[in-house]
Simulated scan of single mutants.
Amino acid sequence: MRTSPARIHVSAMKLIILLLALIAPFHVQAAERPAGVVELFTSQGCSSCPPADALLAELAERDDVVALAYHVDYWDYLGWKDELATPENTARQRAYGETFDRSVYTPQAVVNGRRDIVGSHRKDVYAAIDKGSEDAAALSVDVDISSSDGSVFVDVGTAAKAAPADAHIVIVYYQPRQVVSIGGGENRGQSIDYRNIVTSFQTIGMWHGRSMRLELPKSEIMKNGGRCAVLLQTFDAEGRPGAILGAADAAESW
């Protein structure tokens, strides 16, 4: 039986569409900008932290919030060593302390790099997220994460009219979840479900207002917790962190 030229043409088009779908990068971040970035500085040795940890777990379930938990180590002397804490997390919080000109504390939540709030105060945290979505320059630059084969791609858009045109591209590696039974210190006897636990972070490039793409090996993410977020963040001349202009969260594990 002979096939008509028109049918051959339709079949060829379907094949081309299928091939394009197979070779295109797999996107793990929706195109919409997040409503807010919430960085919680917490510790297993802090009796005030479990309510904030629970609030962060709630925020981690939202598709429109990048929620990250930085465990700090300066409460370890109270009788329980936080195995999720790192000196780098503590250093980031202290740098924020210099930015806000105040002492560090736990639980401290920093929203969009602009406001610090007691991390267990639900109304204040949600209000800061809402306020951030109203700020002209807050999260005004598109950031996207995609994956193909053994690579992860970070795409950053052009500067919005109200946004600064220079920023660091910071990748934050994290472990999505770990339940810890605490055997000592102020939270002794509690079992706490921790979410989006930061394992490490680093600047992977500089952005100067124009769209750009960076490529990273997927293996780096796998060995550092399995997931990552990307923050487009300003820093001052002294290296202190400032406003976050854009963000994306790779909510899928590779």
Rank of each mutant, 00 (worst) to 15 (best):
A91T: 04
R92K: 06
Q93D: 06
Q93V: 01
R94M: 12
R94P: 04
A95N: 09
A95H: 02
Y96W: 00
G97H: 00
G97V: 08
G97S: 11
D101R: 10
R102F: 04
V104Q: 09
V104D: 11
Y105M: 09
Y105T: 05
Y105F: 12
T106I: 10
P107H: 07
P107T: 13
Q108E: 15
Q108P: 03
Q108V: 04
A109W: 10
V110W: 03
R114H: 08
R114E: 12
R115E: 12
R115V: 11
R115Q: 11
D116N: 11
D116H: 05
I117R: 03
V118F: 10
G119A: 05
G119W: 06
S120C: 07
H121C: 00
H121R: 14
R122T: 09
R122I: 01
V125K: 01
Y126N: 13
Y126V: 00
A127V: 05
A127S: 04
A128C: 01
A128W: 00
A128F: 02
A128E: 08
D130R: 13
K131S: 14
K131R: 14
K131A: 15
K131E: 15
G132S: 05
S133Q: 13
S133E: 13
S133Y: 10
S133R: 15
D135K: 05
D135V: 04
A136C: 10
A137Q: 06
A137M: 10
A138R: 04
S140P: 10
S140Q: 07
V141G: 07
D144N: 14
D144T: 15
I145Y: 00
I145R: 00
S146C: 02
S147D: 10
S147H: 09
S147G: 11
S148R: 14
D149L: 15
D149P: 03
G150S: 15
S151K: 13
S151A: 14
S151H: 12
S151G: 00
V152H: 03
F153S: 10
F153G: 01
V154L: 08
V154G: 12
V154I: 15
D155W: 02
D155L: 04
D155H: 07
V156K: 00
G157W: 10
G157D: 11
G157M: 08
T158H: 08
T158R: 12
T158I: 07
A159C: 03
A160K: 09
A162S: 12
A162M: 06
A163V: 12
P164Q: 11
A165T: 15
A165S: 14
